[in-house]
Design a protein around this nucleic acid. Structure first.
Lengths: 124, 124
DNA sequence: GACGCTCTACTACAGTTGTAGTATGCGTCA
DNA sequence: TGACGCATACTACAACTGTAGTAGAGCGTC
């Protein structure tokens, strides 16, 4: 479910990350979960969640006291796919991307092997 | 060279890609090189290049007739690094990212092996 | 030297995004 | 049951982005 093609901004994506992690949360909880030096104001987070709701990326689940709970309405995977695709377009494919990762030390040879092994296993 | 920390928008990055590819180009040449169905107007490209110039991402090289030539003033690598880092932050590291690539069929096991081999070679 | 074409410089503008304030409502505790 | 406090709904707004028009200058051609 969840018809995709929803474009998210950086901050919106960050909020979605929190929701994917927590499963369900209030505005307050999302704000608390945002781990930054310049933490946004409560109402800022509220606005973002509201926009996410309008975009259909988030939905209300229930109410506790007078606080609403929200949960993701789109999958993490679909959003990642979009982000990754965009990046791949720019850098010219996944090969160059991974090469860049290895080259810049962000991914070790051991990591590569581990991924390989896992992939082989899940494939069969 | 080229003090980094320059944030580029999507379109700006696209223009930079053209410049990295061509090495040097006029506004007209950049516009022609943009390969899209909804190609932007000449003046639109002009504006983007102007903004890139203000940001220090691009510099004028010479004049031919009354047309200016521009060249990149920052490296492709530094921009990629920024983009990749942002994505990594979001998806939670390079391991998950590569796993996602493999899983979604964007990267084959053969690709992985090739990268591994190349990395080993360049390392020694 | 005048004309026309192309290029640059400047201006415009609406939509998006990050950021947050204000007003008002609802629950809970005394 | 009234007040306090947190939550929501609504409003605001400046900066950034994509998009492009207009005015005026320079170059090549006749």
């Amino acid at each position: 479910m969840a018809s995709e093609r929803i474009a998210l901004t950086k901050f919106e994506t960050e909020v979605m990350s929190v929701l994917w992690r927590l499963g369900e949360a209030t505005v307050r909880e999302v704000q608390d979960a945002i781990d930054r030096n310049d933490r946004p104001a409560y109402t800022t987070v509220q606005t973002i969640i509201q926009r996410l709701e309008q975009k259909g990326a988030v939905r209300r689940t229930r109410k506790e006291g007078n606080a609403l709970f929200f949960e993701p309405a789109i999958t993490r995977k679909s959003v990642y796919r979009r982000l990754v695709d965009e990046l791949l377009d720019l850098v010219g494919g996944s090969q160059p991307l991974v090469a860049h990762l290895v080259e810049s030390g962000k991914l070790s040879l051991d990591d590569l092997k581990a991924i390989e092994k896992a992939a082989k296993k899940s494939r069969k």
